[in-house]
Amino acid sequence: MVKVISEAEYGQVQECPLAVLDFSATWCGPCKMIAPILEKLSEEMKGKVGFFKTDVDASPGLAARFGIQNIPTLVILKNGEEAGREMGFKPEPLLRSILEGYLN
């Protein structure tokens, strides 16, 4: 499951050894298309990667803190520290291999 969080709940992301935080918005096409892929990967990687999602319009502070200028942006965090980011839509096999790269 991808957990939708508000700015105040950001602590949950930092508690994960490995987390993916998806910055998205309701009006964004690629965000809508990547959502089911993230949902699927979150099931596959259950227990290994925490998946979170936040709306840039609802969490402007969080978006500003990460300097988000394009959505979707996926920020990958290891123990609360940014380890990388991916911008824009990615097909499922590509996104899976990218995220698996962070697991090893």
């Binding site: 096409g29 690629p30 089911p36």
Partner: peptide
């Protein structure tokens, strides 16, 4: 066409807004 998404079992083609 502004964006094309490979969704696995189908393709989504975007020509403007959402």
């Amino acid at each position: 066409v502004k964006n094309i998404y490979a969704m696995g079992d189908y393709f989504a083609v975007q020509t403007g807004g959402i």
